[in-house]
Structure formats: structure tokens, C-alpha cells
Amino acid sequence: MQLNKVAGIFMGFILLASSQLWAADYQIDTKGAHAFIQFRVKHLGYSWLYGRFNTFEGSFSYDEKKPEATKVNVTIDTASVDSNHAERDKHLRSDDFLDVKKYPKATFISKKVMPKADGKAVLVGDLTLHGVTKEVSIDVTAIGGGKDPWGGYRQGFQGSTSFKLKDFNIKKDLGPAAQEVELILSIEGIRQG
């Protein structure tokens, strides 16, 4: 009887360990600057203006065998906007655009993932920006995963989405070519635990 109890506990530990082998939680590697949130918008229809957010944090859970169970949570410091031009960045932080004093954070919280072929997927979630929450779809591609030189394990993805500025109550009109902004995401996470 005692042997059956010990065997049951042992099997429970094995099942718990095996489930943890497949599903893992990752911290987005912003400390090592191996993750980027960039954006681009057309300038007068003649060229692209690029920028990024320098300060953000987030995490995701990922199971390679069950990608539809992926969950993502990201928080962006909107005042960290950087377009490589101090005066323009000041304008982007103003109430014409991000209004960072009133809305210091932007967030993305995933709701579902729709896997496709070849490591691609569509990640659907709520983006909150400028005090407005809207559902957005992000086209995602798995870049790769594996051990790193420091004894950890990493997983990386690339994604992109676009949205209209007016959908987030940003009313500044930059002309017909600049109604939409594209987000370009390069995310590398470090497995936790």
C-alpha cells in the first residue's frame, strides 16, 4: 500500500515536470536590448519615417507543440518614443499625438493565436494606446529558439501590424499618405525558471 502511494507521488512529479518541459514562460529581453518595438509612417508619401520605443517590458508563454495557447503581455513607456530627432520627438510626446502626460503607457494583451504553416501565426489582442483600446491582429513569424551561451534558453519572433491613427483618437492630420502607422516587432524572450 505504501509502495503504491510513493509510486503515485513519483508519477505526479513526472507528469508535472513533463508538462513544464513543453509550456514555458519567457521574459522579453529588453535588458540586453534583444527586443525592439519600431514604427514607421509615410512622410508626405515620398519616404518612410522610422522610430521606436526605447523603454518597454513584457512576457509571453509559448508551447511549440501547442502555439494556439500562446499568451503575450507588453507594456510600453510612451515617453520613450525616439525618431532620432529631438524636436519631432517632443511633438510626438505632445497632445497632438501620444499625449504622454495623460497616457504614459500603452499596452498589448493577447486574446488568441491562430497558427498557420511554416512557423507563422496571427496573434490577436487588445492594443491600448492614447486611452483607446482596440483589437489588432499581428502577423507573426517564429524566428527560432534554443540554448544561449549563458546557460539560458531563448525564443524569438518577428511581427507586424498596422492601424489608423484616428482609430486611437489621434486626430493630428499628417496628410492622406500618413493615415496609418505600421508597428514592426522583433521579440526575443528568455525562458524563466
Score class of each variant (00 low, 15 high):
123 L>P: 01
72 V>E: 01
46 Y>V: 08
77 D>H: 12
35 A>C: 07
41 V>H: 02
78 T>D: 00
103 Y>T: 04
58 G>R: 15
113 V>W: 00
49 L>Q: 08
93 R>P: 13
123 L>C: 04
121 A>F: 02
77 D>I: 07
69 A>P: 02
88 R>V: 08
94 S>W: 14
119 G>W: 07
82 D>S: 12
79 A>F: 11
97 F>C: 14
95 D>V: 02
70 T>R: 03
113 V>F: 03
75 T>V: 15
35 A>L: 08
114 M>F: 02
108 F>S: 01
126 D>K: 14
48 W>I: 05
131 G>K: 02
109 I>W: 00
39 F>K: 05
93 R>I: 12
75 T>Y: 13
72 V>R: 04
72 V>C: 03
100 V>E: 07
44 L>A: 14
120 K>P: 00
76 I>V: 15
103 Y>I: 02
107 T>C: 01
127 L>D: 00
94 S>Y: 14
102 K>A: 14
39 F>A: 00
88 R>Y: 07
100 V>I: 12
62 Y>S: 08
81 V>W: 05
50 Y>D: 03
43 H>Q: 15
39 F>Q: 10
43 H>Y: 12
88 R>T: 08
95 D>T: 04
86 A>Q: 05
78 T>R: 00
53 F>N: 09
118 D>C: 07
89 D>A: 10
55 T>M: 11
127 L>I: 05
69 A>V: 11
131 G>V: 07
63 D>E: 13
112 K>C: 00
119 G>V: 03
41 V>N: 04
102 K>H: 14
98 L>Y: 12
38 Q>A: 08
35 A>W: 07
108 F>N: 05
54 N>C: 04
107 T>G: 00
70 T>N: 03
86 A>M: 07
111 K>D: 12
44 L>Q: 13
76 I>F: 06
127 L>P: 00
115 P>R: 03
62 Y>E: 12
42 K>W: 07
102 K>T: 15
80 S>C: 09
34 H>W: 03
105 K>D: 09
44 L>C: 06
91 H>S: 10
92 L>A: 10
39 F>W: 15
68 E>L: 03
82 D>I: 11
48 W>S: 09
55 T>I: 15
131 G>S: 06
97 F>Y: 15
74 V>L: 02
82 D>C: 13
104 P>D: 09
120 K>E: 11
103 Y>Q: 04
69 A>Y: 05
79 A>V: 09
91 H>G: 11
70 T>E: 08
98 L>A: 06
73 N>S: 13
118 D>R: 10
79 A>N: 09
108 F>R: 01
97 F>V: 14
61 S>G: 02
125 G>N: 01
49 L>N: 08
57 E>M: 12
96 D>M: 12
127 L>Q: 05
53 F>T: 13
96 D>N: 11
94 S>V: 10
111 K>Y: 07
80 S>Y: 14
125 G>H: 01
102 K>V: 12
130 H>M: 06
107 T>I: 10
78 T>E: 03
62 Y>D: 06
79 A>C: 08
68 E>Y: 00
108 F>G: 00
41 V>Y: 05
92 L>Q: 09
123 L>A: 07
129 L>W: 03
75 T>K: 14
80 S>W: 11
42 K>Q: 12
74 V>K: 06
71 K>S: 11
50 Y>V: 01
34 H>I: 10
77 D>T: 10
93 R>W: 13
92 L>H: 10
130 H>C: 02
103 Y>F: 15
